[in-house]
């Protein structure tokens, strides 16, 4: 059941996930914004606004303030007030991080490619203690090789040491790729198309911003990747909605890498099916899962920790597809 409406205020609104945004501005018409908010109010949806870097006109701010909401803002946003009060601040790459005054009350997203992630892991380590929550989004996860998997495993182990140290100091930093799995006993995925949908500047609904921002010619083999699931006048109408649910995901429904984004966009791009992840997405999620397992076990050696949570089981695979005969 849809619970969240993501409103992409502009084509150039920051990306906070695997997809890339556009450089060309296209601000959502004010009337569309009003209709979108009205729709969310009538459908009882929580709104998340995604901002562009430039400052919005005052009338937009006034309309946005008329409804309870969350703000997702880029670290390079020119509107200091919005940025200061944002629920989520996104770093697109690593250039702004040194100059940004990090708040330990704000959640941050770092969008990074694998090369930078591996090369800047020491910097990442130093950020863990400075934020309330740090989400790492790897923007080229589909390109991981066997060698990359090994490097990522090493990076996670190194970051784990820092998290363990902070826990011992009585701090409880959150880092999606390490601590989320420790706290979960069921899947906690993105759930685009199932629990959240996106309203784009063109007044149409999309499964997520990625499906809107896909290039007009982009097809990943199957025809237009860019397609809407309805408009404000008629409401969303998702064809084959069951394919966005966990119980219709052939691999994920058997999986316990609960922290995985289970990104339907990456699924569509890499396997052509929104309900089926690639080998790379699965292995990366399992490396994180296993790192969480090790971290949890190490923290527990120091005393009681999350006693209500079961132990994360040891498994001998990194891709659930490899054990499909056991399902």
């Amino acid at each position: 059941m849809v619970q969240y409406l993501i409103i992409l205020l502009d084509d150039a609104s920051t990306s906070y996930c695997h997809y890339s945004n556009r450089e060309t501005k296209r601000l959502m018409p004010l009337d569309t914004l009003k209709q979108g908010i009205l729709y969310a109010m009538k459908e009882n949806l929580m709104i998340q606004f995604v901002y562009p870097d430039y400052e919005l006109p005052q009338e937009y701010k006034d309309v946005i303030d008329s409804i309870d909401h969350s703000d997702i803002v880029s670290s390079s946003c020119e509107d200091a007030v919005i940025k200061e009060n944002a629920d989520v601040v996104v770093f697109n790459g690593w250039t702004d991080i040194d100059s940004c005054n990090l708040s330990d009350e704000t959640a941050y997203v770092i969008r990074t490619n694998k090369a930078d992630l591996f090369g800047k892991r020491q910097l990442l380590k130093s950020l863990i203690s400075k934020t309330a929550r740090l989400n790492v989004v790897i923007t080229d996860v589909e390109t991981f090789t066997e060698e990359d998997f090994g490097t990522y495993k090493e990076a996670l182990a190194m970051l784990s040491e820092e998290v363990e140290k902070l826990y011992m100091e009585g701090k409880y930093p959150q880092m999606n790729i390490l601590t989320d799995r420790m706290m979960l006993d069921k899947m906690n995925n993105c759930n685009a198309g199932w629990e959240n949908i996106t309203l784009a500047p063109d007044g149409c609904f999309y499964v997520c911003p990625a499906f809107y921002l896909a290039g007009d010619e982009e097809d990943f083999g199957l025809g237009k990747a860019k397609y809407s699931i309805g408009d404000l006048e008629n409401g969303p109408d998702i064809k084959n909605p069951q394919l966005y649910r966990l119980d219709h995901a052939p691999i994920c429904r058997h999986c316990d890498a609960y922290q995985c984004k289970r990104c339907v966009w990456l699924n569509r791009k890499t396997t052509y099916e929104v309900n089926t992840p690639s080998h790379e997405q699965c292995v990366v999620a399992h490396l994180e899962r296993n790192a969480s397992r090790n971290l949890l076990n190490r923290i527990r050696r120091h005393g009681t920790f999350l006693p209500e949570r079961e132990e994360i089981k040891e498994i001998d695979y990194l891709d659930p597809f490899d054990v499909k005969e056991e399902w």
Partner: peptide
């Protein structure tokens, strides 16, 4: 649905077979 090409040198894209083999 093209899962590879003999001239690509990369053989079959196994990611594209995953939906079929778990159906």
């Amino acid at each position: 649905i093209i899962i590879g090409n003999v001239y690509s040198g990369t053989g079959i894209n196994k990611n594209l077979l995953r939906p079929y083999l778990t159906l």
